[in-house]
Amino acid sequence: MAKKFKNPDELFKFADELTKKDSDDIIELRIGMGTCGIAAGADKVYEVFQKEVEKRGLKNVVVKKVGCLGLCFSEPNVEVVMKDLPNVLYGYVDEKFAIRILEEHVEGKKVLHENILDKPYQDIYEEEEVK
């Protein structure tokens, strides 16, 4: 994939293309995998998600490693981003709860009412769209 940008404009174009490629039905599972997430067992949760997503043939689900969400006290943390539902951030996710997230939230399209942490923060880049 070694693509070398030959001038600054190519980078802008590339960024646009990446954004366009995003389809609406992608469901993202963001798992906080900084050092402290991993220490609290996020790597196991990540594996469970990967395995289960494959087993269930959920093609539009992306299981994604992300950095620290800041909530070290409730690790492992998982944020679910999908169409028609608000972004939800779950804390204290263990292997069992991970499966419930898949079954009830992702497949059942219903927000689970346990272990919801704060609403994810306002994004500095969303401001542009608001304007």
Binding site: V66, L85, I124
Partner: peptide, 27 residues
């Protein structure tokens, strides 16, 4: 659709430096 969040952790935060942390795959 979201009932009883456990904490109000992000409410007064403003993430500029950590804008991508927890959003993107750092790798």
């Amino acid at each position: 659709l979201i009932k009883n969040t456990k904490v109000e952790f992000y409410h007064k935060q403003f993430r500029v430096v950590l804008r991508n942390s927890g959003v993107i795959n750092p790798e």
